[in-house]
Design a protein around this nucleic acid. Structure first.
Lengths: 331, 331
DNA sequence: AACAAAATCCAAAGCGCTTTGAAGAATTTA
DNA sequence: TAAATTCTTCAAAGCGCTTTGGATTTTGTT
């Protein structure tokens, strides 16, 4: 039997009879034969690989656990379509170099861009490379069209802030992610809009920016709690920071919910799933794993159909009522 | 100039003069030429790719944030040697199928095995596939030799337990990882050995096993605290569980350190780095990122030199004194 | 100047598949 | 039954590199 027939049988071409195909499939199964990936990729001209470049700040070498869940969602989708996932952690200063290199040696068919900034250069750069991509998040100042999957950060933080105000809080802290990263900016916008609509004067000292680690949640919460006029409620950008906030409250002998209300954004991380009947934290919740799945889906669609118009998918975070929010204590 | 010369110039063969090499390198740089990955891999017969298969329990779809840091360490090492990292999350029931598939289609030159069990079948299976691999952790009952990188779990949990006993604790709970996973077993062994050496009768109810999530830390801590004769000290297998334990203490109006002492294993995760002058938690600390780096190094060595004897690298976790351990409260 | 040795370069084969274009076998139509 | 049509199969080319073995040029030796 010729190579051609085997190849066609395995790849599902109609030119081969069902009987022949069965024979081939059985033989392949028997010898555990799988077409050699390398040869196949060269012959088809496809890499069948998606690149995820995660930028790591050289200084701190932080790797956000969020990636683990995002990638879990994406990975499942890739596997479905026979794509491999290439993961690369690169120093943040030369992320574009890495994209360029991947493109030049044609190692991937597409890439996912993480944590875009308000002014994100990678979008224009990737468009110029002609490498299909999808952004997890958006870039407010981007001029070109691009594929993205994002949650409605502005609106959900608006709602969170509003909820606290309606409970009676007038002094609310925001423990946000790194300044300049798009989602953090939008969250601040939502927070400020809610304050404004209720005629509450924002206080600069009430907003902090940092990587969303547990120690930073602790540190920033302490800073806010130690103000002469401390906020009675805090909004956190990540459940990991919320863990740090709890520790800070502990240190100051304050009780979460009773003394200080907290709302956190909850990415529904698998190792921090707040699944109690009454959730621990009142939260704006949106599964980052689902975002990963959708991003992967969008990217694969774009790869298969290069002419496709870029698309944006906006997920709505739910505002979930937990037990970490109460009216402010009366004094 | 011939293809051969260019190829040799780029790949650093001595047959080409330094002058010619410079000309080639400049031309390549100018046109951003990089040899096509696919063609190169077919020609050389190498995949230049390392596979990381992370098994995901189908039921819960948990992805341990530890992987993020482990992979960060490994990734840096791979990049150094021009290897790509292929990440695949697979349902745990058919992890071997995935290895077999990767080997059959020769998509990777080697793999890393995560979270081995006491009885780990994958080791024999991979040896039979003749696919280079290194295990992160060990498998107590494995008969064959294999490459591994592990921390001294037995000894560090022995020391942690001993420290608590020396402080005066006689009732100590252990909030461990999933039963049957090798590191968890060794940790229990260390814990039991310390109890025994101090003539303390172990209590079955004092040891819990589960995935090392925050909610499980909370749940298991509550279960222990609510015993009629609750332990005065807890040992946790992960800093993420320690966060859950803190929450449980909070719920019971107990103060960490004062009312209940806690020692946790600390993988030095970048988003949970306990870097205060006096650490928050007394901990057995060992950087999982460093383990990743070492695993990658060992694997690459094995790939380059297939005849190499399997090697084991044992890291020693430091016992770091923090502020979460005190003598038991007197009543 | 003549020859040997070393340095440098090149043409062609081959990596293991997919895909094209054409041939052969089976079926249908006139 | 012969021709037309469809179904099934196959030989060979090509994907973009690396590597082999030989040809050519340069350098060194007597």
């Amino acid at each position: 039997m010729s190579q051609t027939t085997v190849s066609r049988a395995l790849n599902g071409f109609p030119e081969v009879s069902e009987k022949t195909r069965q024979v081939v499939l059985e033989a392949a199964a028997k010898h555990n034969y799988k077409p050699n990936t390398r040869a196949r990729r060269l012959a088809t001209g496809k890499s069948m690989t998606i690149g995820h470049l995660v930028s790591v700040s050289k200084e701190y070498e932080l790797v956000n656990p969020i990636f683990a869940d995002f990638i879990a969602g994406a990975s499942a989708r890739y596997a479905q379509s026979g794509y491999d996932l290439l993961l690369s952690l690169v120093p943040d200063e030369d992320e574009f170099t890495s994209y360029k290199e991947l493109a030049a040696r044609s190692a991937v068919d597409g890439v996912v861009v993480h944590a875009p900034r308000v002014d994100e250069q990678r979008i224009a750069q990737l468009n110029s490379l002609n490498l299909p991509f999808v952004v997890h998040g958006r870039s407010s100042n981007a001029l070109e069209k691009y594929n993205w999957v994002d949650v409605n950060n502005e609106r959900s933080f608006f709602r969170a802030t509003q909820l606290l105000i309606e409970l009676g809080h007038t002094s609310i802290g925001l423990i946000n992610g790194v300044a300049g990263v798009d989602f953090a900016v939008r969250r601040t916008q939502g927070y400020l809009r809610a304050l404004k609509e209720h005629n509450i004067e924002p206080t600069d000292a009430h907003v902090t920016h940092s990587e969303m680690t547990e120690p930073n949640g602790y540190k920033n919460a302490l800073a806010l709690l130690d103000l002469r006029n401390p906020p009675t409620a805090l909004i956190a950008s990540s459940i990991i920071m919320a863990n740090g906030i709890r520790r800070a409250l502990d240190d100051r002998d304050l009780k979460l919910g009773r003394d200080v209300s907290v709302i956190t954004h909850d990415d529904d991380l698998s190792y921090f799933r707040d699944a109690a009947a009454v959730p621990v934290y009142t939260a704006t919740r949106s599964s980052v794993r689902e975002a990963g799945r959708l991003s992967a889906d969008l990217l694969l669609k774009t790869i298969v159909n290069p002419g496709r118009d870029p698309e944006g998918i906006l997920l709505d975070a739910e505002l979930i009522l937990g037990s970490s929010t109460k009216p402010p204590p009366t004094r």
